[in-house]
Design a protein around this nucleic acid. Sequence first.
DNA 1: CTACGTCAAGTAACA
DNA 2: TGTTACTTGACGTAG
Length: 307
Amino acid sequence: MRVGYACICLECPGLRCTRTTVLRNATPERLSDLIRQNLSGLGEILRLNEARGIRLFRIGNDLVPFSSHPINTLFWWEDFQPELRALGEWVRQHGHRLSFHTNPYTLLNSLREEVVENSLRDLTALARVFEAMELNASHKIILHGGVRAPDFDSAEARFEAALERVPDAVRARLVVENDDRVYPAERILGLCRRTGLPMVFDTLHHAVLPGEWAEVPVVELLNAAFSTWGAADGPPKIHFSSQDPDRRPGAHAYGIHPEELSAFLVATQNTTPDFDIMFECKGKDAAVVEVLPLLAADPRYVSQVSS
DNA sequence: CTACGTCAAGTAACA
DNA sequence: TGTTACTTGACGTAG
């Protein structure tokens, strides 16, 4: 079991891998500088994570600013191949696992062809980062079910049709996550079973939008989601977070409620196989560090690769 | 230095 | 019909 956090390292504010710019300032020179700084920052963040026993990290979409926009005319995956390959080698040696999460505009099943095309470009650009890092398909790109209009059945059919247009090497990295407003777990599980894509189960999203499975024990849903993961996908991943009591349903709390996490760890004691936990909270790595003692007490937790 | 308006992009729920 | 939120606030100009 690895644990991790998303995009931003709060405990070391100078360390960043999501420097970006606005479109009007996005010259090749500027973009090149930003990529160089971001790749350097990513390496430092990963090394800091390693020192703390955190081996899962979601890379922000701005690692390569405007990576799927025509303004970015760089062959960045070639220009920065040495840096990317070195990062990938370090990641493999230390047993870390990276991921991307698509932004809200990446919608494979949009009713607008232009949006589908942009989405395909976006997924391809993200996969290109992992390919340049020479990391295998266990390093995933997470996306949601997308739009629902005019109904689930036809929207999912469009999703499957768009998936046929995704290059195999990109498709091999895709995983689909239940969200908190459109696609509940049962829809994503069905979609994943039909397409062969693995499912990431998100606990808070499920609590907010349980769909037809409000009464089903979460462990059963976890096992169903885990069954969609193949050997080449690496261990199943889940998203775990707590509800912010002062904000809208689905809003991530600053931290992770220890009792909630303990109960979850106990409840999943007999799930197979082992899995990785991505914590989504405002407190980022600081929040994960707070519950690390709790995690370290779990026999499934592995802080470092034994060499 | 700080404050705050703006930033590539779509969709759906809410008022 | 307009506003809000989402994977994530950061960028950049005005004062």
